[in-house]
Design a binder for these strands. Structure first.
Length: 563
RNA sequence: GCGCCUGUAGCUCAGCAGGAUAGAGCAACGGCCUUCUAAGCCGUAGGUUGGGGGUUCGAGUCCCUCCAGGCGCGCCA
């Protein structure tokens, strides 16, 4: 268990040493200010600036009324000789303190990597914290499209990453199987059914016109024949609604499974009504004078909690709104004991955020516990020409079609290489045409390449060595040290990605790491006549492979052994 | 009109809760396979970070303002 934290050791130790130096200076009267500045210890972008750098002196400067460089000199005085891993310390630029580490400090990373294997990169940061990620949650009124795919990839990867960072994660899909849209769905299928059986009926506007509706209707005929032709409409509709929702939902589940997305819980909106949860929420709000009647409807005073206007929960006709269900649903979620609940929504729902945070405030839930990630639109293009998408008109490209056309891995990687709050252009032709140079293949190729070298070595009677079988000091080429440093960054990268809810950091990192590997590969031969060197390098590149594989797994992308 | 998101190389995007000389990949140009995978590597070129103010030792990053694009502002879901 202890080694779980060991990987942060270098950075954490520097942090401690610096704090200690500040305290010592203070005791000796060299520094006056009382507060410890929130200084950073980070790997500088430019490697000439050392392995780690801190801005501590610059942050102390204003309070001390001294120049940052003068303060840096004071600190460095107390820092030197205080650590075995530091080779030298320099003051640079406006007052940065740069640390240059001994080669030895990095070798321990390779040992940890071996010990942790597929757990390398994980931390215990979220240990004991229950967190829920609710995503996709598309209405079962039609198949998933690319926009849902983006949310699916994001939610799935985020859940993986959070779990890797130690959180106890539940993945949930909320099924909106109640309401007028469901009735429209049933009616759409019913009318198509009648049309297929040569009945002369109108198909009014506002219903679902997609081809998949026809497919559902055919399925009804297949399973139940013509028996509904003669039933009166009000009797037939509930059956059609239910049948369609079930069939479409199972299609959604299939698509998600094919996309590599898994859920722990499928939460049905209907159960909120069956168990009276919606009514209970409404009653509670009424009792607390947070609800009032106006023009025949029942309103929630969301304006009390920062919303721009109050919102209707029960309509004039007596039916409840989607919002009413959501109140009950989120109340229910938090009652399950999650410290944090993350909702991933399409950005077109952003107007909904203030009223939901208002609801949670009204329910006495701390706002930090509720996080909405808004996923911006996907502009689907084909050779630069927008592809129209609308569920009702039936003109859209489904997630399934995209997967079949460009592949699961490429699609996921494209979604996960961008921040979620920026719109995304997804050009089908580009994603396909560039398949040879697509970043996902660049990363996967690196992984396959390492596998190939490893099996080549095995043929030469050099099995994959263990850490204690190699001499890590042989890995002293500049590229090798850079690679080891890059590997060492992985755990904190995962943690940062988890805490910022930003899976794309993983993709970016993997591209950088694999780029360094490809470059290394063409400069240095791994398997040579020098057995010890071959072993050391073989160990190193397999460490890279391990990180690539762990990272790709978090993203839900395959790490192939051959390409 | 109000609100949210975005604006970085010709194109698609990064830039790690302000840090040092803004980076990749495509596209362009020039090189590299008789030895471990050329889906690769090396090099060249490409930028007033949408414009303008401000905050400070320091701004692509924070604040204000203007411009442009997207989305949202129903007793819809």
């Amino acid at each position: 268990m202890r080694y779980l934290f060991k990987k942060h050791m270098i950075k954490d130790r520097l942090q401690e040493i610096i704090e200690q130096a500040v305290l010592t200076c203070r005791q000796e009267g060299l520094l006056q200010s009382a507060a410890m500045p929130a200084f950073a210890v980070e790997a500088p972008r430019n490697k000439e600036h050392g392995d780690f750098a801190t801005n501590a002196a610059m942050l102390l400067a204003p309070a001390e009324k001294k120049s940052p460089r003068d303060i840096a000199r004071l600190l460095v005085d107390k820092l030197t000789g205080n650590s075995t891993i530091v080779e030298r310390i320099e003051i640079a630029g406006p007052g940065f303190i740069n640390f240059y580490l001994q080669h030895e400090a990095w070798c321990s990373v390779l040992e940890e990597l071996e010990q942790q294997g597929e757990r390398f990169g994980s931390t215990a940061a979220g240990s004991g914290i229950k967190i829920q990620v609710e995503f996709v949650s598309a209405n079962p009124t039609g198949p998933l499209h690319v926009g849902h795919g983006r949310g699916a990839a994001l939610g799935d990867a985020l859940a993986n990453i959070l779990a890797f960072a130690g959180y106890e994660v539940q993945r949930e899909y909320y099924i909106n199987n109640v309401g007028i849209q469901m009735q429209n769905l049933g009616k759409s299928v019913y009318l198509r059914y009648l049309q297929l059986l040569k009945q002369d009926v109108e198909f009014p506007d506002g219903l679902y016109r997609g081809d998949y509706i026809l497919g559902v209707a055919k399925e009804v005929i297949l399973k139940h024949g013509e028996r509904f032709v003669k039933s009166p409409e009000p009797e037939a509709l509930p059956f059609f609604t239910d049948f369609a929702a079930t069939l479409i939902m199972s299609g959604i589940k299939d698509d998600l499974a094919q996309f590599g997305v898994r859920f722990d819980n499928w939460f049905s909106e209907k159960t909120l009504f069956e168990q009276g949860a919606v009514q209970r929420s409404i009653d509670e709000l009424k009792a607390r004078d947070l609800a009032y009647e106006h023009e025949g409807a029942l309103w929630f005073r969301t304006t009390r909690f920062g919303d721009e206007k109050d919102r209707v929960m029960v309509k004039e006709d007596g039916t409840t709104t989607y919002f009413a269900s959501d109140i009950a649903y989120h109340r229910e979620k938090f009652s399950r004991g999650f410290a944090r609940v993350i909702d991933i929504w399409g950005a077109d729902h952003h107007g909904y955020v203030p009223r939901m945070t208002g609801v949670l405030q009204a329910l006495g839930i701390a706002p930090e516990g509720f996080n909405v990630i808004l996923v911006q639109m996907v502009n689907l293009l084909r050779s630069g020409v927008p592809v129209a998408m609308s569920t009702r008109s039936g003109e859209f490209v489904t997630l399934k079609e995209v997967m079949e056309e460009v592949g699961k891995d490429a699609a996921r990687f494209i979604f996960l290489t961008r921040r979620s709050d920026a719109q995304l252009d997804f050009d089908l032709e580009v994603a396909k045409k560039q398949s040879d140079e697509n970043p996902v293949y660049y990363v996967q190729y690196g992984h396959a390449r390492i596998c190939s070298i490893t099996s080549f070595a095995r043929e030469k009677n050099i099995p994959l060595p263990a850490f204690h079988d190699i001499n890590p000091y042989l890995l002293s080429a500049a590229e090798e040290i850079e690679l080891i440093k890059k590997i060492a960054q992985f755990p904190e990268l995962v943690l940062g990605s988890a805490q910022a809810f930003e899976p794309h950091r993983i993709s970016m990192y993997l591209m950088e790491l694999v780029g360094m590997f490809h470059s290394y590969y063409s400069k240095h031969r791994v398997i040579t006549d020098d057995l010890n060197m071959s072993r050391a390098r073989l160990f190193l590149i397999n460490g890279i492979r391990r990180v690539l594989r762990n990272g790709l797994t978090l993203l839900g992308v395959r790490a192939p052994e051959k390409m």
